[in-house]
Amino acid sequence: MKHKLVLIAETVMDGVGKHVVDLIDYLDKSFFEIYVIHGIHRTDYRFSEIKLKWAGKVTFIPVDTLCREIDPVNDLKAFREIRGHLKAIGPDIVHCHSSKAGVLGRIAAKSLGIQRVFYTPHAYAMQGQSHWTPKRRFYWLIEKTLAHFATRHTFNVSEGEKQFAVDLGVEKSDHFVVAYNALSGDVTHTNPEALKKELGIPEEAFVVGCVARLFYQKNPEDFFKIAKLLLEEDPNYRFIWVGTGEMMDAMKAWCREAGIYSAVYFVGHRKNVDAYLNLFDVFLSTSHYEGLPYTLVEAMRASCPIVASDVVGNNEVVISGVNGFLYAAGKVQSGVNAINRLKMEEGLKCQMSESGYNRFQEFFTIDQMISKIEKFYKDSL
């Protein structure tokens, strides 16, 4: 007899969506009967494709009131609907993903007496706040209460994310399990020169890129500040941002005002991310905070050296001096210096490219992530 597993997620796009899609795709379906309760307002092509792939074998349950924004009326409706679905399914295991589903899903499961409840925060909302504001204290209280009373284990996507929670007293260390975000070994090999020509990038240009949503967490302001400083030193740099977001218009305006817009390419959302990673000479991440970003793992898989802000998550993917460089968050000149060094030292760049791919193979393959999560599921039964 199969064991009923329910995955609950408000967002099924970007990093959270990728993680949920991988669980759907790779978990043992001879052992688990999988249900997915999900929001409908933040989805992407990966989730649409996985629904088609597993139609009839995985049950997908949309909840239109499950939204990112805090809205007491909508949230109460979503809670009631989630609770109703859980009651009808009678799951053996519930696994909630990210903040909103983590709150509503865990409370709903607890109210029904479901004992095997797991949670993956995918970066705590508190990580983006350095001071004890009322908002941060509110988030902390919720996480602490639900971790203690309504969660069997919390899966963290990095050691740093786990330590952050332990240091804040969310729960004791043995409550947390680290399972790195991971990828299959499949990578699409493309012709970077053809894409460079398609975009109108000069053949001799040194390309620095990022794949991320344009919003506060990813700190695109520092990405473009670094771009400006590099272009002042060498006009042969070019910069690509793959992704969309609420800061798109503001960043385009900033680049125009700074006089660098002609050297910057905002290409929007792209399915063929590997093609851009193959084109990048350096992947630049300027994030304020992270859980553990899939895009850096993708960069390593594509043998692309990384320059990244030294924040939780980034600093477990990047070993500074091995597969890239870390720089103190906000210290843009340090980021500039690291990229300049990679441009000037081709041997170092090649060495870091190879080291990155080897690090991906050692720590970040999909089999490692799935086997760890499956083990805790099965051991709880």
Rank of each mutant, 00 (worst) to 15 (best):
E257Y: 02
R116D: 14
R152H: 03
F325W: 09
E257I: 13
S111R: 00
A194I: 14
A308Y: 07
N314A: 10
S130P: 05
D379N: 12
A123N: 09
A212C: 08
A338E: 06
F224L: 07
L86S: 05
F266R: 05
R46M: 10
K349F: 04
Q129I: 15
V178I: 06
A253G: 06
C96K: 01
Y261I: 12
A205M: 06
Y45E: 14
M248N: 13
I373R: 02
V12S: 00
K375A: 08
S334R: 04
V208G: 02
A147S: 15
K343V: 01
Y357D: 04
I319L: 11
L27N: 04
Y216F: 10
E159S: 08
P121T: 08
V273K: 11
F239I: 10
K372E: 14
D22Q: 10
S334F: 07
G84W: 05
F224T: 02
S98C: 06
R341K: 11
Q368V: 03
G90H: 04
S285G: 07
C255T: 14
T365S: 07
D281L: 14
V177E: 07
T59L: 05
S320W: 11
L66G: 03
R42Q: 14
A147P: 13
K53M: 09
L348M: 12
K18N: 11
L168Q: 02
V207K: 02
H95Y: 05
F149G: 00
L296M: 15
R137Y: 02
A194L: 15
N337A: 11
L76P: 00
G56H: 08
